[in-house]
Simulated assay, not measured.
Amino acid sequence: MIDLLKAKKLIFLLVIVISSFLIITGCGRDSGADIQSAEDNSFIMNTLVQMRAHGENAEIAVEESMDRIREIEYLMSRTLEASEVSQINDNPGEFIEISEETQKVIAESLYFAELSSGKFDPSIGPIVDLWGIGTEEARVPSQAEIEEVLEFVDYNNLEIEDNRARVTKEGVKIDLGGIAKGYAADEVREIVKKHDVPSAFINIGGNVLVVGNNVDGSKWRIGIQDPRRGRGNVMAIVESKDQTIVTSGDYERYFEEDGEHYHHIFDPESGYPARTGLLSVTIITDLSLDADALSTIAYVKGLEAGMKFVEDIADVDAMFITEELDVHLSSGLTGIVEITGPDFNLIEGENFAD
């Protein structure tokens, strides 16, 4: 069953650790000393949101960014009764007027569903509810229960028409959790740029996005979490500027029962947590919304199919970590990723694209 003590410790660890994925390079004694800075840590979208900005308008950029993330949560959370997503789920067959923001995210979720042949599916809600992973009601459902709700997991039952959307079948429940955090991070970047803030990072539950360089002029150093250990333990470092780094792994939300590990990344076809021999997949690209969806898709597809999928998309790179602790990099990351974990093996020279 769920380790409740571990769950209670999680929030505490999140507060004291700047980021499980982000290592901030130290500034020189004089470098950046006179630059205004602002930061905030808030619990939004069911996760810890951490932001830091450096520049003349840093404070207003951080404040506005946090408010924007709350607005997105209010629109797209499936657990808030008044949200637009909840209104869609609670009124099957009826078109619900939605905001431009929700319209965009739903449209993008359908795009990635088509692109991945259903490996990413915004109608995964019934499976999420059945397993209850991340709640005190987490359990292993029976095969019969899974088969019963799989009838409702089909993104073709979600329709969007201009500023309206609906599910066409009672029992279908959409869940934008696999893409909404990425959209929120992209919105933060626009706010930061609007206020001419030259240096900032945002971490929304592991969805990391950096703007510009670090305050000392160097690139941001992004640490990739060791998937076997707690937050703050990294196994690789990537230097980055104006990019997003998003990781999907089997260690973020999970429970154990009878010696089995059950995580929250579901295969929409089977209704079970994806079993592909992977511990995590990290996507590095420009748009956090894309990275959010792509990390899930690549994880569910597995190493070979996932790598082929990523290599076919321009300006997207990925790092796969297998259960054997082998690290596989897409072609664009060769020579860029620094492996710091002594137990990990960097596998180079493989080509899954053929």
Rank of each mutant, 00 (worst) to 15 (best):
E147Q: 15
E147P: 02
E148R: 14
E148L: 12
E151Q: 15
V153L: 00
V153P: 00
D154L: 13
N156W: 09
N157R: 12
N157F: 15
E161S: 09
D162N: 15
D162G: 11
D162Q: 14
D162H: 09
N163G: 00
N163R: 14
N163Q: 09
A165D: 04
A165G: 02
R166F: 07
V167L: 05
K169L: 14
K173M: 12
I174V: 13
I174C: 06
G177N: 11
G177L: 07
G178M: 12
I179Q: 02
A180C: 07
A180R: 02
G182C: 06
A184V: 11
A185P: 10
D186R: 09
E187R: 15
E187V: 01
E187L: 12
E187N: 08
V188Q: 07
V188I: 13
E190D: 15
E190H: 11
I191F: 09
V192W: 11
V192G: 02
K193S: 12
K193E: 15
K194Q: 02
H195P: 00
D196R: 09
D196V: 10
S199K: 04
F201M: 11
I202L: 04
N203G: 05
N203H: 01
N203L: 05
N203V: 01
I204M: 03
G205K: 01
V208C: 03
V208W: 09
L209W: 03
V210A: 05
V210M: 07
V211T: 12
V211P: 00
V211F: 05
G212W: 07
N213Y: 10
N214L: 14
V215W: 02
D216G: 00
G217F: 03
G217S: 04
K219P: 03
K219R: 08
W220Y: 15
W220H: 08
R221K: 15
G223S: 11
Q225P: 02
D226S: 07
P227L: 08
R228P: 00
R228V: 00
R228T: 08
G230Q: 10
R231M: 14
N233Y: 13
V234C: 05
V234R: 10
V234A: 11
